[in-house]
Design a protein around this nucleic acid. Structure first.
Lengths: 150, 150
DNA sequence: TCTCCAGATGCAACTCGGTCGCATCTGAGT
DNA sequence: ACTCAGATGCGACCGAGTTGCATCTGGAGA
């Protein structure tokens, strides 16, 4: 475990305590797994990695723990069309949007401010507060883009 | 059945024939249901409505028929995060994007050209061809928007 | 350090959206 | 009318996520 990820874990655990949430083995282990991973892991991926750190952790616990961590704002999830939801630690410094290639399934990162104009326009015109990074947008990546998609 | 929807059905059935696809009872019935519906129906919703027009149509047939109709370009689907996929007839004149409220679940329509700039920028910068209406974007609608989301 | 209990966990059964293999049926070309 | 590739009905299956309930435990208070 790198010092960077140890620090992420400490911060996240701190948030849990601050909000009166219990710091259990499962929660600490899950945060640790998240801190050491990239941000495209499904609940099942997390359960697999958790099997080493905290064996016997049940799938249902993974889902419930993720829910708790989201509630206190240390975790967030992204929906991938045609695929499982992925989870990641909230990290203001490294936010980015996700683009999913409909052909090869590759996830391409996009700058976090890509939709800033759209957010502004929707707020002004429809009073809709857009949450730009909660779903992956889809399309075709450079190496795939066909004339006509699936 | 209105004359407008009858016309949509005829056009769609024409596309099927043109592309050498069979015109079966289930396909005709499903196109008819789609032509008479708004565009936020799940496969199960469609199966329910199909029960009147063409009783005994199996769920699996609904999925397979939707797939065939998509292949010939008369149907398209939109993913709603936290909900089932919805299907609609392709209709160039009435395209729009979908915004899903994370609080009340309401679907808000947005102008189809909302993401045109983004499409252009992504194409230029990343070679990614964005398909702007394949997933619903999420956020909070005018009557919900809280200070902090779920 | 011990006690206690709200809240977290393990487990199994369940839901829901979607897919698949296979036997049967049918649209449409001859 | 005959034929058969392709469409359908059916049921079993799958993956993702949820729920009810019994048991366990973190951490606050004595």
């Amino acid at each position: 475990m790198t010092s960077a990820s140890r620090q992420l874990v400490d911060i996240a655990i701190g948030h849990l305590r601050d909000q009166g949430e219990r710091v259990t083995k499962a929660r600490r282990a899950l945060v640790t797994v998240l801190a050491e991973s990239d941000d495209h892991l499904s609940a099942d991926d997390l359960a697999d990695r958790l099997a080493e750190l905290e064996p016997g952790t049940h799938r249902a616990t993974v889902y419930r723990t993720l829910e708790s961590l989201e509630k206190v704002g240390v975790v967030s999830h992204v929906h991938l069309p045609h695929g499982p939801t992925t989870y990641h630690l909230v990290d203001e410094d490294h936010t980015h949007l996700h683009l999913l290639c409909r052909s090869c399934g590759q996830i391409v990162d996009a700058p976090h401010d890509l939709l800033d104009d759209v957010v502004q326009r929707l707020a002004d015109s429809a009073g809709f507060r857009l949450d730009p990074d909660h779903v992956a947008l889809t399309g075709w990546c450079r190496s795939c883009h066909p004339d006509r998609g699936q």
